[in-house]
Computed example of a mutant assay.
Amino acid sequence: MNAEDLNRYSRQIKLPGFGISAQEKLQKARVLIIGCGGLGSPISLYLAAAGVGTLGLVEFDNIDLSNLQRQIIFTSNQTGESKLDATVIRLKELNPTITIEPHKAQISAKNALEIIDIYDVVVDGSDNFPTRYLINDACEILNKPLVYGAIFQYEGQAAVFNLNGSATYRDMFPTPPPPEMAPNCAESGVLGSLAGIVGSIQANETIKIITGLGKPLSNQLLLLDTLEMSFRKIKIKPDAERQKPTSLIDYDVFCGITSNSEIEISPEEFIEMKSQNDSFTLIDIREEYEHEAFNIGGINIPMEEVLEQIDTFSGKIVFYCGSGQRAKAIAKKLRKSHNEDRFYALKGNLNLF
């Protein structure tokens, strides 16, 4: 290390048991962070600041105003920009000595093994069950340690999987919950500071794995309740009889999620609908301030009010939001509750329309 490195990392080098040897391990490490959102923000900031030599980032989404409450790596004037591009810029500003490897893609069964294979540790910043099972299986196949985190409303979880033969995500959750029992942040809400707490824990566990310091959260699940400010641990045992994955599968099907092809409308399809004067009601399900800041037309009914008012509309209904996720969730829920296929969601970021 040079004089600048010694100065930059001096506060952690001085730690008992840390020293230059631990810092050099960090600088040689290659860590992959999947997701640059609520969890990915603190994970990437703290690992970059700590001096992890190479950080891989996987992200495909754009920044929405509703992200900023918890995705602290972004600023208001970056709304609509690529999360990946904005994260790369911020991390290089924070620590120009490290290497950033961006992967502008949605992690999938087609690319997961290829992307994950070149890293030492994988950190899961995703927010849905299909992706969690996908990442877990890929890490188990490639024998990579996985640092897990999840947040929901006021509660969070963290664990380390597949470390030297320790338990995996599938040992903890052998089967996924029904889709209707797995709401996301857009539907159920989340405390922004919770993402910071859990993401920081994940960054901390990653540093411990790389340096060999302390005892990682392997074979145990850390549970956090921010309202009670309580922490507790649950032991997880590896299932010796569980069949290990040898290949990746269709995780949407595994988690009981039906195809979105009939529900989602692409920008091209939407433009064609408008040009042909196809009869439909366009509803923006974002909050009023979001609609006023930028919209593509239609009426504004916030997500929590849609279910109460939907029966006042007849015919085809197209929902939209900032990224398409909330719109897709509402369209799916209404198709199921009304047993009708007249509900659709615009696919993609608003800037595409």
Rank of each mutant, 00 (worst) to 15 (best):
M1W: 03
D5T: 12
Y9S: 00
S10M: 05
R11K: 14
G17H: 11
G17W: 08
G19P: 00
E24Y: 01
E24F: 01
R30K: 15
L32T: 07
C36P: 06
C36Y: 10
L39F: 08
S41N: 05
P42M: 04
P42V: 05
S44C: 12
A50C: 09
G51W: 01
T54F: 06
L55Y: 08
V58C: 13
L65W: 05
L65D: 09
L68R: 03
R70D: 08
I73C: 02
A86L: 01
T87V: 07
I100Y: 08
P102I: 14
K104W: 13
A109F: 09
K110R: 14
N111S: 09
L113N: 11
I115Q: 04
I116T: 12
I116D: 12
Y119F: 15
D120C: 01
V122P: 02
V122Y: 07
G125F: 04
S126I: 02
P130C: 05
D137F: 09
I141C: 10
N143H: 14
N143M: 11
N143D: 15
K144V: 07
P145F: 04
Y148P: 03
Y148C: 07
Y148R: 04
Y148M: 08
G149Y: 03
I151W: 09
Q153N: 13
Y154A: 11
Y154H: 12
Y154M: 13
V160G: 05
F161T: 05
L163K: 07
N164P: 05
T168D: 07
Y169T: 05
F173M: 13
F173N: 09
T175K: 14
A182L: 06
A182D: 10
C185N: 15
A186K: 00
G189Y: 13
L191D: 01
G192M: 09
L194T: 08
L194R: 05
G199T: 05
S200Q: 12
Q202A: 00
L213N: 09
Q220I: 02
L223T: 07
D225R: 09
S230V: 07
K235A: 14
K235Y: 02
A240H: 14
E241C: 09
K244H: 11
D250P: 05
D250I: 11
F254T: 02
S259N: 15
N260G: 06
E272H: 14
M273S: 08
E287S: 13
Y289I: 15
F294T: 11
N300I: 01
I301C: 00
E304N: 15
E308G: 04
I310H: 08
D311I: 00
T312V: 08
F313D: 00
K316V: 04
I317N: 00
I317L: 12
V318T: 10
F319K: 01
R326Y: 00
A327T: 00
A331D: 10
A331Y: 03
K336G: 00
E340K: 09
E340M: 08
E340G: 01
E340V: 01
Y344G: 01
L346Y: 04
L346D: 01
G348M: 07
G348W: 06
L350M: 10
L352M: 14
